[in-house]
Design a binder for these strands. Structure first.
Lengths: 254, 254
DNA sequence: GTACACCTTTACGTTGCGTCAATGTCAACA
DNA sequence: TGTTGACATTGACGCAACGTAAAGGTGTAC
C-alpha cells in the first residue's frame, strides 16, 4: 500500500505540511515520487514516521530525532538521558520563575494592602476636612483650637481596626436610635442605650468626657440645622429625640 | 545624563540589538534622536527598561510587558496570576514529558539488559563453536558425542552469574598457576591449590568428575600443541607444570 | 588627517510548522 | 470527453526574541 501526504497524515495524525517539512529537512523522505511529483510513502516510511512521532512526543527536537533514528548505532538511551537532563533543567528554571512570580505577587499584594492603608488614611483625612469645613469655625469657637486639634489627632491616630469600629458603632447607634424613636420614649431602655452608644462613639474623638459637654453637643444637634438635617434625614424629629435621651442620660433633663 | 544604545545596554545588561528591537516593537522608545539618528535615552527610559527587565525575568512575553507597563491602570497582580497559571501549566506539561521519558528509558534499559542477555548467550555460543572447531573432533572421539553435547548443554544452561564465575575462576586459576610455577614445585601448596581450582573449573562443564579423566585431560594439555600453546603463551613449561601438579593432585603420579 | 570605536538600517537565521497563493493532477461522473 | 472537486506541488511569509553579519555613516582622541 502506498500513501500520499494527506493519507499518511491522516493515518498518523499529522498534517500534510508536516510531512512535506519532514521531507524538506531530510527527516522522512518518501519512498518514491510519481511522474507528477507526488510524494508516495510505503510501509517502511510509516514505521519510520511512527518512530519520529514517538520521540517527538517526548519533546526531542527534530534534529535530535534525525540523529537517533538515522544512525542505527546511535545510543538511544544516552540520548534520552541527556534529554531528560535538559527537561529537568527546564523544570528547575520554571520552578525558579514560579517562585519569583510568587514573590512578586506577594510584594504586589503587600503594596495593595499598603494602598488600602493609604486609602484608609485618606478617608480619615477627608472626614476631618469635611468636619472642619462644616463645623470647624463653630467647633473651634466653642471648644477651642486645642480641643479640636486634639480630636483630629485622635482620629488620625486610629488604626484601621479602631476606625472601622468607630464607623460601625456610628451605624449601630443610628439603628438603635431609630428603634428607640419608634417607642417614642426618650427615657426608655432603648433610647438610653442609644445615648450610651453615643457617648462611646464620642470617646473615639473626644479626649475627655463630661456630662456637660455631652449635653451641650446634643443641644447643638438641634440648634444647628446641619446636624439636624443629618439626623432627621430619614426620620423627622430624630435629632430632638436624641437630645432628649442624652439630657436624661446625663441627668441634665431638669 | 543621556545614554546611547551601547551605554544603556551595558548599564542594564542587555545588548544594543535588544534595545533597537525594543524600539522597533514600540516597547521602549528613546527620549530623542540626535541629528545623526543616534538613539538617546534619558533617566525615564532607564527606569522603564528596569521595569521591562523585571517582568522579562519573570518570563512574561514582551507583548504582555508592553500592556502592563504602558497602561497605568493595568492590573499587574491579575496579569501575574494569569502568568503564574500558565507557568504551572507548562510545568505540568514538563512533568508529564519527564515521566514519559523515564518510562521510555526504563523500557529501553529493559531492552538493553535483554541485549546484554543476548550478548551473553552469544558469548557462550561462540565459546562452544570455538571449542568445537579446535577440539571438537578429538573430544568427541575421546569422550563420545554424548559427553561433549552434555558439556555444551551445561555451558548454555549457565546463568550469567554462573558464566561470570566460570570465567573468573579461569582467570584466578591462571594466576595461581603462575605463582605456583614460580615456586617450581608441582607438589607444593600453591600448585595443589591450582590443581584443585582446575577441578572446580572443570565442574562447570563436566557432568561427572573422575580422577582418571582429570589426569587424562592434564596429559592432553601437554600432548596437544594447541593447549600447550595456550598455557605456555606467557610462561614456557606451564602446561607441563600443570599436568604434573594435577597428576600429583589426583594421586596418579606414580 | 586618520584611526578606531561606535552608530545606523537592512536582512537573514533560528524552530516547527500554519496558512495563503498560484498552479498542476487525479478520479469520478455526466 | 469535458468538467468538477478534491488533492498535489512549490514558494513564500509569519510567529518570538533577538544574534549576527554587512555596508556605510559618526564621534572623538591623538
Amino acid at each position: 500500500m502506498e500513501y500520499t501526504v494527506q493519507k499518511l497524515g491522516r493515518l498518523a495524525g499529522v498534517s500534510a505540511r508536516t510531512l512535506r517539512y519532514y521531507d524538506e529537512i531530510g527527516l522522512l523522505k518518501p519512498a518514491r515520487t510519481n511522474s507528477a511529483g507526488y510524494r508516495l510513502y510505503g510501509p517502511a516510511e510509516v514505521d519510520r514516521l511512527q518512530q519520529i512521532l514517538f520521540y517527538r512526543e517526548l519533546g526531542l527536537s527534530l534534529e535530535r530525532i534525525k540523529e537517533i533514528i538515522t544512525a542505527p548505532s546511535f545510543d538511544r538511551a544516552a540520548a534520552l538521558r541527556e534529554h531528560r537532563r535538559q527537561l529537568l533543567a527546564r523544570k528547575e528554571q520554571l520552578d525558579l520563575l514560579i517562585k519569583n512570580v510568587d514573590k512578586s505577587l506577594a510584594a504586589l499584594e503587600g503594596r495593595m494592602t499598603m494602598t488600602d492603608q493609604e486609602k484608609f488614611e485618606g478617608f480619615k483625612r477627608e472626614l476631618i476636612e469635611e468636619n472642619e469645613q462644616k463645623f470647624g469655625a463653630e467647633a473651634r469657637a466653642k471648644y477651642g483650637d486645642a480641643a479640636v486639634d486634639r480630636s483630629n489627632e485622635m482620629l488620625m491616630g486610629m488604626t484601621k481596626e479602631q476606625y472601622d469600629r468607630f464607623v460601625q458603632l456610628g451605624e449601630e447607634l443610628m439603628q438603635t436610635l431609630k428603634a428607640a424613636f419608634a417607642t417614642g420614649d426618650p427615657a426608655g431602655e432603648l433610647a438610653q442605650k442609644a445615648a450610651d452608644m453615643h457617648r462611646q462613639w464620642l470617646a473615639f474623638t473626644w479626649p475627655h468626657y463630661s456630662k456637660e459637654a455631652h449635653a451641650g453637643l446634643a443641644q447643638m444637634y438641634v440648634d444647628d440645622e446641619r446636624f439636624t438635617a443629618y439626623y432627621d434625614q430619614d426620620q423627622p424629629g430624630l435629632a430632638k429625640f436624641l437630645r432628649d435621651a442624652i439630657l436624661i442620660y446625663t441627668g441634665m433633663a431638669n
